[in-house]
């Protein structure tokens, strides 16, 4: 046990600090180290109960009904997310810009050194000659464009031209690999060595088409977050109150297993929460065990990533009814307004 922990223990066990669990131990330690005792609004809340309890209560009153200190339920919640798996869709302006820059590069670069890559008279050299005749440029994905010719200045595509579209560029690359576009006479010779080129899979999956909100294959270029419907029917991130002496990180790991089952390979990022949500109960709950009166709840959000697996609510211990993997905009439709205003800034735009 190092000096810091000792100090925290000592501070926490001081008799005039009964509400020590309303302020976390690391904050307590840092504040105890401050040279000047500056009090702000946040620390004043922690200091206030100590003043009220420093006056000794009358003995018979304490025996019949023990003093309940006003406090909050501290809950840990897990923002379990699946990061984007695909690159994002480019804006039309970006596509046009990249194509224009590639064509400019073709104009400014030194000519392709053909004899370094293709020895004279080899089949590869013949193939190269045939291809360059068709597309007029060594680059395979900028369309038919002759950078060195008299009309090299015509490097901008017209309205409605599809050359900048990624699908068209992929098609051009595949056509290039498959030796297509040959004249009729040559075709028979090369048909035997034609190789099957594996096409890129679609960016739109089956889960996208059926809008399966439980699937992790949906919206591959966005971050998806796990949202559960709790016993009260409200949609929230999975959460639970802190048990015993566990910290937020431990609690987050426990909540993931208790809510979504063990069939998820997850990583809780860091020990610090990324956000918090506060809710005052309509009527305070009296917790006699901990001798406190719970005014409301404070939920701390821990960030977590899912690497593999899927949530399963069969062995859920919190009585959650349903779960969904949703992107940021979709979450807004399901959660309450107060909850949304606390969580919206910690969710990723992409």
């Amino acid at each position: 046990m190092n000096a810091g922990t000792k100090t925290v223990r000592r501070l926490a066990s001081q008799p005039n600090r009964p509400a020590s669990d309303s302020i976390c131990s690391s904050c307590l330690f840092r504040l105890s180290n401050t040279p000047s005792q500056i009090r702000t609004a946040a620390t004043a809340a922690a200091a206030a109960p100590s003043q009220t309890t420093s006056t000794p209560p009358s003995a018979p009153d304490a025996a019949t009904n023990p003093i309940l200190h006003p406090a909050y339920q501290v809950r840990a919640s897990v923002v379990l997310s699946r990061p984007p798996l695909l690159t994002r869709e480019l804006h039309p302006f970006e596509k046009a810009f990249y194509l224009y820059q590639r064509r400019l590069n073709e104009r400014l670069a030194l000519p392709f050194t053909r004899y370094f890559y293709y020895k004279k008279g080899t089949p590869a050299d013949v193939e190269w000659k045939r291809k360059i005749k068709q597309r007029l440029t060594p680059a395979r994905d900028i369309g038919v464009y002759n950078a060195y010719g008299r009309e090299g200045w015509n490097d901008e595509v017209l309205v409605g031209d599809q050359t900048a579209e990624p699908e068209v560029q992929v098609e051009a690359l595949i056509r290039d690999l498959e030796h297509k576009g040959e004249e009729e006479g040559e075709k028979k010779e090369t048909e035997s060595n034609e190789m099957a080129v594996q096409r890129p899979l679609s960016r739109v999956t089956g889960a996208d088409k059926s809008n399966d909100e439980r699937s992790l294959d949906r919206q591959m270029e966005r971050s998806l977050y796990l949202l559960v419907q709790n016993a009260a029917g409200k949609w929230r991130f999975p959460e639970d109150t802190l048990q015993g002496r566990e910290g937020l990180h431990q609690a987050a790991e426990r909540v993931i297993v208790q809510a979504g089952g063990i069939n998820m390979n997850t990583w809780v990022v860091g020990n610090a929460p990324i956000g918090h949500y506060q809710w005052n109960f309509e009527k305070a709950i009296e917790n006699v065990e901990k001798s406190r009166q719970e005014q409301g709840e404070k939920v701390f959000f821990m960030k977590a990533r899912i690497m593999a697996g899927q949530a399963n609510l069969e062995k859920n211990t919190f009585g959650d009814k349903d779960f969904k993997w949703l992107s940021k905009e979709e979450i807004e439709k399901f959660v309450t307004r107060g909850y949304w205003s606390s969580i919206k800034n910690m969710l990723s735009e992409r």
Binding site: L31, T34, P35, I38, I274
Partner: peptide, 16 residues
């Protein structure tokens, strides 16, 4: 984002 969360150090409001 993950790097920022990992490297975060909390300084409570009264901290000097």
């Amino acid at each position: 984002q993950d790097l920022m969360t990992l490297a975060y150090t909390h300084f409570p409001p009264g901290y000097v």
